[in-house]
Amino acid sequence: MKQLLYIFVSVVLFTACSTTYPPYSSYDIELKSSAVVKKAKACSKETLRVDNVSTSQPLMSTKMYYVSGVESYSYTVSEWSERPSEFITEAFVTALQKSNVFCNVISADSKAKSHYLLESRVDTFMQYYNEAQTKSYAKISVSFFLIDTKTQEIIAHMHFEKEEPCESLDAKGGVKALKKLLQEASNALALWIAGEECK
């Protein structure tokens, strides 16, 4: 009798394993090297620290969220391979390093001291559908603040916001559009920093 009970429990548990899930797709955004900023002949000897971007909770998750009408959902079979807050930060650091405006561009984790600090706040980085889900576009909205670490005062700030229609009505189309928008935001950041540095 006792053995029958064990077998029954095991069968019940193993039936859970019979539940099948569709295959998952992980998306990664890897930006190409930016060529929008003409490299300076001699970079500034000062150090720029790029702080981690400040984002809302959905962008700290690997779940890929989208907005349909006014409701927010997550893709069931698609997800980010890396948290958006992290790859957006990396994209900004990489763009600034390649612009060569500052000789030293360090990340938030670095122990070195810096002359300037770049804070970023990402308000929107998401794919949007209309209610009928017949159209889709991606949107990015990010604000940058350049801070003098000595005086703790904001020297300059910039806001970048743009929308990009998606090629296809799925996660892949959204990822492509978001990737393009992130590339443009990084380029705009590099140009802005170069301009600010030259002042």
Binding site: Y66, Y73, A171
Partner: peptide, 12 residues
């Protein structure tokens, strides 16, 4: 048991 109905996203 994965009983809850999956809300399929566009394209899924």
């Amino acid at each position: 048991y994965k009983k809850r109905a999956i809300h399929k996203a566009p394209g899924e």
